[in-house]
Every structure is written in C-alpha cells, then in structure tokens.
Design a protein around this nucleic acid. Structure first.
Lengths: 147, 147
DNA sequence: TAAGATTGAATGCTCAATCTTT
DNA sequence: AAAGATTGAGCATTCAATCTTA
C-alpha cells in the first residue's frame, strides 16, 4: 500500500501547492483556474453549466457559486443557451481570456517543476495509462448512478 | 500533459468516492478515517497534535476541528502530553479502535477495487516510486518554509 | 413530470489573532 | 520571545429544496 499512500498524498500536496501559487500570482484558486481553462478550450469560449460541472470534480451548486464569483470579477459572463432555452451558458470574457494568458505560463511551469520533471519517462507513461483508466472507470460509474 | 490531467482527476475522484463510501458504511469522512488510522498505528495509540498535523495534508486548525468532532463521538480522547507540558496528545479510545476495525476492511477493499486492481504491477511500481518522490519533494519544501 | 439551474442551511476549511507555558 | 494549541471570522462545499420552462 505504499503506492496508495504516495498517490493520495502527492495528489493532495500538489493541488495545495498549485492553489497557493495561483493565488499569489494572479489571485485565482486552482478550481477557478480550471474553469477558465475549460471555457478557453471550448468552441466559442463557452459551455453549458451542466457540461462544465460534469468535467470538473465539483458538484453543480459549487460550480454555480464559483461562476458567480468569476462573473463578479468580470472574467466570465452568463447568458441563456440559444438552442436549449432552459440552459445557461458560461462564456469567457476578453478579460477572462487575458487573465488566462497571464496565469497559464506560470502554472504550466509549476506543474512541470513539481510533477513532470520529477518523473522518468517510463513513470510518466505508466501514470498516464494507469491513472487514466482509474479515472475513466470512476467517471463511468458516476454516469451509471444518475440513471 | 495527459499524464497530469489523469493524475489530478484520478486523485480527486478516488478521494471523493472513498469519502462517500466511508460515510455510508460507518459515518466517517475520509479525513476522519485517516486520523484514526494514524492514531491506531502510533505507539500507545496516541500522538501529539502537531505531529499528527504534519503527516496529514490538513492545516493545524483544521485538525483541531476534526479531533474535536471525533472527541464528541467518543472515538478520540485528548490529554496533556507527559513529557512536554505544553503539548496535547490525541489518543484513540477503545470505541475508536473498534470503529477502526469496523471501517478498515471495507475501505481497504474499496481502495483495491478502485485503484490497485486497475493497475498492472509495473504501473503500481512506477506510481509508487515516482509519486513517492513527488510527495517527498513537496514535504521537504514545506519544512523549509517554516524555518 | 423531468431537465437545468439556483438558493439556503449546515458543515468544513483556512488564515490570522489569541492564549498559555517555557 | 517562541512553541504548542485553540478560537473566530470569512469563504467554500455539499445536500436538499425550490424555481422555471419544456
């Protein structure tokens, strides 16, 4: 179970560290940064709330709260979904896109320093494959629970 | 960066899932369970608050809070530390030890099902070695910050 | 009635300030 | 003054209940 302990604490410690660095750098939490990243990568820089919540580990109401905060900062805008009138889209503003560009280099560099560069190429491949399967199985199970 | 995404979401998803199962099984959060495990493994089933906080990812005040909750449940007892009069020891009660025995089999089984059995032996070895280093580097850095 | 999203209450977490003992 | 621990305020997260529209 050494493996299990390492996975658990490495995950938590890295998350904490990145959270702190992002707050110092640009004043965003790690979760807020992830939200901006997803929106930035979406077509039209916009996504429905539900779809966004599914990709993040967070619950739906947690997402509502954080998007509300990002909207106050002017980084995100909410607007009704065109093709499904009961949906809501969250859209990255220009200011949000600028913030993302400002935050990304430091964040990527930090991930490299704390994780990527510490692993050998073989370890990187093994982690990507193995934990990718772990994640996929949990996401499937999650889907089943809703049916 | 596929590796990084897998690590981040697998860690969070597994943590969440174990938290839910523990709550359904015995009514403990994952963090509370971890506290009981550390105490159970300590000599005399007791540990100083500070030492406990260092091993967990949590902050000190977070630990004070959770130990308070566990004390209300009768699973943990607080008493002054004999050899260092300003310290406080947290000690597992008999009831706490019983709770641990009740919770452990299901938890271990869940970890096996969700993580261990999903990885090949090579992947297990790579995760243990690589993420072990990631964790150790972050723990060192944490120590330096306090000096 | 069900999907999509939000709100409110209750709990948990973190930071800085405080208290106590050496 | 410094170590060890707790407290309180403020923010974040969850769950269940609600609102709205199809």
């Amino acid at each position: 179970m050494r493996m299990w302990q390492a996975l658990l604490s490495a995950g938590a410690l890295v998350d904490r560290e990145l959270d702190q660095r992002l707050k110092e750098d640009v004043g965003l939490s790690h979760l807020q940064y992830e939200i901006l990243v997803r929106l930035g990568a979406a077509p039209g820089r916009a996504m429905r709330m539900t779809e966004l919540a599914e990709r993040l580990v967070n619950s739906k109401s947690g997402l509502t709260y954080q998007v509300g905060r990002l909207e106050e900062e002017g980084l995100v805008r909410r607007r009704p979904c065109e093709w499904s009138p009961r949906g809501v889209m969250a859209e990255l503003t220009d200011e949000g896109a600028a913030m993302l560009e400002r935050a990304a280099p430091g964040h990527v560099e930090a991930v490299r320093e704390l994780v990527v560069d510490v692993l050998t190429p073989q370890e990187r491949a093994a982690v990507a494959a193995g934990l990718g399967r772990v994640r996929d199985r949990l996401l499937e199970r999650r889907g089943e629970d809703c049916r």
